[in-house]
Write a protein that binds this DNA or RNA. Structure first.
Lengths: 337, 337
DNA sequence: AAAAAACACGCAAACGTTTGATTAAGCTAA
DNA sequence: TTAGCTTAATCAAACGTTTGCGTGTTTTTT
């Protein structure tokens, strides 16, 4: 028994009134009398009437749907962020559709195109590692589809974005290590192509120079984020003429590789580690970083979602300022250490 | 400059042909001549024509959209599963919308309702911990919306599902421990209300009795999945007259709690641990479980997605059998140990 | 050369809902 | 009484696309 869903027309026919009256009745429009309104609502209920969303969306030219494009959903950072986005948008009765770029620029371009065809009301994006051109996003503005970037953002200001101040956090992190007495602090950074790598480097340099120490460029090593890359980087420090006593790792994944390797060499106790939080359970690990930069993915997701809603509902889509929101990241000290 | 999107009608008007011909031309319908077809396609391209999806969906009464409802996206298991689902459905040009029940039955009911209103073509669901009634899903079948459950499935056969054989995996796990010489094996199980708990218990009992050992019910302790609950359970074993030499933990989260506690008591070396994999990096932990039951979330997601597509495109939605797919889970031995 | 078939396209309805314009009836105030 | 107002409802168009059916023209077949 495949009951076709009830429609407004059917209700109208049964009640011998017009479909428009039914529509208005269901929406409490003042021009429908109380008696008729109740009759409509009761019949609708008893027939299990459910508005046909596709019809409404089509009619209104609005989809109440937000697209989310991010590199990799199975990374904890992103799954937490999108979890927040969904929670936030559900409250406002928006629907979330999402897709993963898998860190491929071409895929990202395709997905943006697809989202546009889906007529999303707006887009939340964390860009792929490969993305250095942004035409595919600019095209959206001519269709009046607002975009808010989060966490992985383009390197310029004239877009809406939410991100963490990795630079400030890095300053805090290095200061913390300096205060603990460390004088030779190394950093295993990400690829130079990443904006995030530059921020870390800048923060590091600022902290060092502010404390009137000499900045030694050879203490920052870039790495490709793989396990082998991390090992190679570590080797440079271990054999360094000024052997560091503390290491700042680009993220928790690198920190894990590093810990594993240093343990194997049995020199883990020679270093204090600081990392940037991606993994929830890293604190359970022995010899885990003594401090961690928390980037608040849930908060970032929340804020990005709300900014997007603001933009969608802004009356004057014209000449409005760009939202450039910075979520202050915090240095979380691992108590056990 | 907010260019309104081009429509088929406009193209038709410019070319002085009917909208139907344009539509057919764009779809390579045989009844449109090659010349006209090319003219249509070229103009469409130059005007940046993009089909209005909402109109198409409305017209076809199909949304090419799949809903996914799961308890908690930020759990690694689920983010991996949905990652697979998205990858799989994107290939077939379906769109994914999702929502989290946050393990609340009421929320789940609401979400099912919402998905139905969205007119999804099908639903993939991992049920909440609280769910013991299933009317909200049964309602869907009268609207011809197929549902495939994965991982967290209802406790009966007359639905479509994909899940892991936790029972078999548990047998393997216990056998593995027995082969290692353990004779007193404890289990920290989940709440008795969970189907997953019963499976583990059944597997445990089968392995024990098959090996002609005596089953001691006091060696299985149920726990509420919290840290304190785990500690309470552990204490029962530690003070047990037959102190176990191996412990099977309900999942990696419990294993973490357990490891932390046993380390604190400095008796971690007295136990061999086995757990069920939820966390990707648990193997990096010292004293981590010596073996782990892998439940293949990516594979489960893939299979569930494909089954759903089969159901959606099945010509005879009537009297067809239920897909009851079991993904064999494997016991992964942690090599380092 | 006539009949049949193939081709190329147009017409109009349909999908379900919303909404501006319109109307008819009853009521109020001068 | 009559113009004006309120109330309660209807009408019809519109959103963009698809599709069954019809039709006129050309080509093929016999």
């Amino acid at each position: 028994m495949q009951s076709k869903p009830t429609t407004i027309k059917e209700i109208a026919k049964i009640l011998n009134i017009s479909p428009s009256s039914v529509s208005r009745g269901l929406h409490d429009h003042p021009s429908i009398g109380a008696v008729t309104r109740e009759k409509i609502k009761q019949l609708a209920k008893s027939l299990n009437y459910e508005p046909n969303n596709t019809a409404i969306l089509f009619q209104k030219g609005k989809t109440y749907t937000i697209g989310v494009i991010l590199p990799e959903l199975s990374e904890h950072f992103f799954s937490t962020a999108i979890s927040a986005i969904e929670d936030e948008l559900l409250k406002k009765n928006y629907t979330v559709i999402f897709a993963q770029s898998h860190d491929s620029y071409e895929q990202e371009v395709r997905l943006v195109e697809k989202m546009k065809n889906q007529r999303v009301d707006g887009l939340l994006v964390s860009i792929s590692k490969d993305t250095s051109k942004f035409d595919h996003f600019e095209k959206l503005s001519s269709f009046n589809i607002p975009v808010v970037f989060f966490d992985r953002i383009p390197p310029f200001k004239n877009v809406h974005y939410v991100a963490c101040s990795i630079e400030n956090a890095t300053i805090k992190a290095v200061n913390f290590l300096l205060k603990k007495g460390h004088r030779t602090i190394a950093m295993i950074n990400g690829p130079t192509t990443l904006f995030a790598s530059n921020e870390r480097k800048d923060g590091y340099m600022q902290a060092i120079t502010f404390n009137r120490l000499k900045y030694d460029p050879s203490l920052i090593v870039n790495c490709d984020l793989t396990e082998q890359g991390t090992i190679d980087a570590a080797n440079q420090f271990i054999n360094h003429k000024r052997k560091p006593t503390a290491i700042v790792a680009f993220n928790d994944y690198l920190a894990l590789f590093l810990i594993k390797y240093l343990k194997k060499l049995n020199i883990i106790q020679d270093f204090d580690l600081v990392s940037y939080a991606n993994l929830p359970i890293i604190s359970y690990i022995d010899n885990s970083p003594i401090a961690s930069v928390e980037q608040y993915p849930y908060l970032q997701g929340q804020k990005a979602a709300n900014i997007l809603l603001d933009l969608i509902n802004a009356p004057n889509a014209e000449n409005q300022a760009y939202y450039n929101t910075i979520v202050e990241s915090d240095l979380v000290i691992n108590e056990d250490k």
